[in-house]
Amino acid sequence: MAPGLIAVVLHYGSLAKFAELARNAHPGWLLPALGAQIGTYVFAALSWRQVLHRAGERRPFRTLFRLSVAKLYTDQAIPTGGVSGSILVMKALNRRGLSNSIGMAALLVSMVTHYAADVVAAITALGLLWLHQDADLAALGLVSAFVVVEIAIPVAVLWAKSRASDGQLPAWITRLPVTEDAIEAVAAAPDELLRDPRLIAETFLCQLAIILLDSLTLWLVSRAISAPIDYWMAFCGYTIGDAVAMVAPSPLGLGTFEAGTTGTLALLGMPVEAALSATILLRGLTFWLPMIPGLWIARHEVSRL
């Protein structure tokens, strides 16, 4: 059974709650929230387009936008810090004539800037909590663990690329299952793209824009249910929830994010019931609503690989 279908079965209660909340929500706030989510797909597509243009490879924006829907869905369904969705996009572009080396470079740039944006957002959220005297040792420990994981993964991949390019990779790594082919693909990625500061800055801003738009979505849905909060609170709620989901991943990425976001909003003074309702609405817009097109596109692309 596909991950999306499993999610529907296991979390039917939250899906039904989302539908109920959406029916009762104020459309004047809910429609802009939907627009903010469409914006996340636009910036995801732009981040890949920047890399491809810099490499001299141009693909129709509508294709990249379509793949971005599948990417963000896949990232939600298979929580791997953005890697699963990036691999799907890379394979889909390979099928459309993009070379493995350029595709891998695009994946690496996307991965590095994705993690960098996550780290900046998490540290900023912790700083905001500290300024408002809501930071504690638990928040510090969570963000610290999140930052360590987010930094360790791209550093390890880039270290492996550097060593593989020089032929100095330890032998025990190459003996790991399916590692040899992956390392060869990583080593073949052109260093020029990874060392282009302008490209890194542009894709980083695209990744950061996605986080800000997701936070904006939470801010808007809180108003849709007549429980308004400040934007900085929505930003902290979304970012801490994302950190919890990364440090303590759950099947399909559901449960831990809701707990982290709801708990953070409640800590910041939002009534628990309203915080949970806003989180469910956010989750509905980021996961449930794009599930059908995201699942269909992902299955279509996988079936043609």
Rank of each mutant, 00 (worst) to 15 (best):
V120L: 11
Q76N: 10
V178D: 13
V178L: 13
V83H: 04
A189Y: 05
E20R: 15
L31H: 02
G56H: 09
L252F: 11
A33K: 07
A22G: 05
P228S: 11
Q133K: 14
L67K: 02
P228V: 04
V272R: 12
A171I: 14
H53P: 09
A234R: 03
A171R: 15
R96S: 08
M246V: 13
A33T: 13
L305W: 14
L107T: 00
R59L: 15
L34F: 12
V221G: 08
T63H: 10
F61W: 14
V244F: 14
N24E: 15
R59W: 09
Y115E: 11
L205S: 14
T40R: 07
V186L: 04
P27H: 12
L34Q: 03
W219I: 14
Q133G: 11
H300D: 05
A19T: 04
A275M: 06
D191I: 06
L193M: 11
L213E: 07
L194A: 05
P32Q: 11
P290S: 01
L265W: 06
L30Q: 00
M104S: 08
S250W: 10
P293M: 04
E180T: 04
R96F: 03
L72Y: 01
L142A: 05
S86E: 10
L285M: 02
T286N: 03
A234F: 02
